[in-house]
Amino acid sequence: MKDGLQVSGLEVRRGGARALRGISLAVGSREVVALLGANGAGKTTTLRAISGLSPAWRGEIHFAGREITRIGPAAVVGAGIAHVPEGSRVWPEMTVMENLRLGAWAVRRKSGLTRRLDEILTLLPRLAERAGQLAGTLSGGERQMAAIGRALMAAPRMLLMDEPSLGLSPRVVDTVFDTIRAIRGEGVAVLLVEQNVVRALEIAERGYVLEGGRIVREGGGRELLEDPEVRQAYLGRAAG
């Protein structure tokens, strides 16, 4: 898995406390991997550490054979990892188009931006309809799509997605997961943090379960979905 993401022994401290207590995980290229766990287990911290927003105290992060542990958020995007933050976080007083264009900041000097924009608007047709609208006026689902489109503009080889279905209606959640499938189809790996465990494990090749800043379980998507303990903890019912 030389070209994917490898995290080894990652520790992150927050105000003295250890938010991550040495986690190791891997995401292969073209793989969708789910990161599960209760609130406060360290899922978002893991994504932020990979992105370079929360500094790693110990441990190493490698991507595509290159160490990216301390290169900073801008360089991480440049290295090919884009982050779709929780709650979409689009720039509300910019148009959808401006949001998308700015997503390409890290690769702005490379060619092919216009073609990339076209591809994304084909992948996310809703954004084409809303192109001139201020992002703050979009619906929750459209905002999530705009955030995904923005991240894709950086031409990433891997997306970190933090709770992309949070607060969306079931039909919109379907669209979001269809989009994730389509993204994988384009050859982009996804590390997915989701509170919707069933949906996440249905789509993911593999998954990790975080608890108290440690990985307590890992396995194939199906395998975890049928695991009695996982079902007990996250679905509130035993395997049927």
Binding site: P73, P85, L102
Partner: peptide
């Protein structure tokens, strides 16, 4: 654009690789 992005959501700007 980067200036406006930082003004509107600094965290999201950092995530998009804006210094």
């Amino acid at each position: 654009l980067a200036l406006r992005a930082v003004a509107q959501d600094r965290g999201a700007a950092a995530l998009s690789g804006i210094p």
